[in-house]
Amino acid sequence: MTAADRDRLGALRSELDERAQDWLKRALAEPDRLEISFAAAKRACGAPHAVRVRVALLAEHRPPAARLAELYRRGNAAERLAVLEALPELAPDTDGSELVHDALRTNDPRLVAAALGPYGACCLAPHDWRQAVLKCLFVGIPLAEVHDLAPRAAGDDELARMLRDFAAERTAAGRTVPEDLHHLLELTSRPAPARPAPDRSALDHPATGRPVADHPVTDHPVTGRPSTVPSPVDGPAAPRPTAPGEQRPTGQEI
């Protein structure tokens, strides 16, 4: 547990009543019972504190990746949200990108929104991030909930194309275009942040501490070849290493 974790825990404790404080003290001391205490946190400490209590339990016990994944997979929606919230706390020891992708596959807007928090904003490859943002528009999640929306969207021509196509499809169907779409389209038209990006450290992958561009770029779903669309975080500053024998793709592929 880091100093910041301890400060957060102290603040949390001061808000709990005596009974809940006792419960939390026991739960923090019983790593073997993490699954039970994680599930019971809301009943033990009250709904307003449930997420922070669950995050504190994870920060204290720091379950290995497999156990964390089980807590997520066997969790109800509130427990899954807490795992997603805790991912920045558990980095860089734990790579939570699989859980982020799982949450993005759901149709529960709470999970989709949580997947686009600080951790997801860092770990998602450009194609996945664009798909996730488009899904937000699709299911009605306010884009204000997407972490680092403006710096990631700036200069993203591919995202702009996807937004225009989506708007055209909605219009053709006689349906309204989400208000957020126009705002996001405006963000894409802004210049990409100058390098180094003003908040470059926040864009580093939380699990590895390396810039996300160092991670393999997601393959294009149709061509099976790596996507090469530039974006503020996967641009020329850190090109993907070319594997031996692989020809570096050069053209716009999407």
Partner: peptide, 16 residues
Amino acid sequence: PASPTHEGNSVLRGGE
């Protein structure tokens, strides 16, 4: 509903 996020037809048709 927990927040306005969950309202609206597009939510109900999520994945359409």
